[in-house]
């Protein structure tokens, strides 16, 4: 009986479009805006936390999630679909990587794994596409020797932005967007959701090469301020950053070689500190 309905719901229209995916994108474009900015020494993810009722306990809502100690994720679109993807991303980062190599996946590998899950929902029978776009931010250690970077900086070649640019080989921060179709794009800075277009225009104006994490957080808040519908405070804003290893989050100390997570969410107090300096 079940197999009678397990044909794919996502089928081509005569014009060559997959309208189910376009509908999924419409769901994303009605979602709350989320944005990400890559800096030389980290990444910021930010979004508005809209609650439908004043009776909701704000700290219990969470839209930015840790996937691996160095990778975090935010979404625009349907919350329940997002939570499913977070579970699957966390699971695949272990089954598909850590349990095999005893290390966490590089950002691009995780993004590809998540994108595959999303893509499969556009071709499988009996399912609908995910109604979310994701921003995935992560830091990679890289495999090229550190010394090679030093040499480049030492030379009197034209001024290059300091720090790493991301990717598996060089290492450093990378920021990806994943769409309901399963496509993914790397960005320096971008936004998704209801006010993505205006937010991106704003980011284009404010983004500069060689940005530092603190500047990026500042710009993220300014961008959010342009589009936010309610009040801006530590309860209504959510920020996740990829920065230097946060050893204080390890829960222990004195273990040689142990490194704290690079991805962490800012506390209500930390967000309010940034807001007062806006």
């Amino acid at each position: 009986m079940a197999d009678r309905y397990s044909f794919s719901l996502t089928t081509f229209s005569p014009s060559g479009k997959l309208v189910q995916i376009e509908y999924a994108l419409n769901a994303v474009n009605q979602g709350v805006t989320a944005l990400g900015i890559k800096a030389t020494n980290g990444i910021v993810l930010a979004t508005e936390k809209k609650s439908s009722s004043p009776l909701i306990d704000p700290p219990s809502l969470s839209k930015i999630s840790l996937i691996t100690p160095d990778i975090g994720m935010v979404y625009a679109g349907m919350g329940p679909d997002y939570r499913v993807l977070v579970d699957k991303a966390r699971k695949v980062s272990h089954t598909g990587y850590k349990r095999i190599y005893n290390e966490y996946p590089p950002t691009r590998i995780l993004v590809q794994d998540v994108a595959r899950v999303v893509q499969e929902a556009t071709q499988s029978g009996g399912v609908r596409p995910y109604g979310v776009s994701l921003l995935v931010a992560g830091w990679d250690e890289g495999v090229e020797p550190e010394a090679a970077d030093m040499k480049k900086d030492g030379g009197d070649s034209p001024a290059k932005p300091a720090g790493k640019t991301g990717g598996i080989l060089k290492g450093g921060p990378s920021l990806y967007q994943v769409d309901p179709s399963g496509s993914y794009y790397p960005w320096k800075a971008t936004a998704i959701g209801k006010h993505a277009t205006s937010a991106k225009t704003f980011l284009e104006k404010r983004y500069t090469e060689g940005l530092e994490l603190e500047d990026a957080i500042h710009i993220a808040l300014l961008t959010l301020k342009e589009t936010i519908e309610g009040e801006m405070n530590g309860d209504t804003i959510e920020i996740g950053i990829v920065g230097p290893p946060a050893d204080h989050l390890l829960g222990y100390e004195g273990v040689e070689g142990a490194q704290g997570p690079r991805f962490r969410k800012l506390t209500k107090e930390q967000i309010e500190d940034y807001l007062t300096n806006l």
């Binding site: 190599y101 290390e103 590089p106 590998i109 590809q112 495999v143 598996i168 080989l169």
Partner: peptide, 10 residues
Amino acid sequence: REERHISPQT
């Protein structure tokens, strides 16, 4: 998949 060589540790 990873466009890099595998390290001895990995």
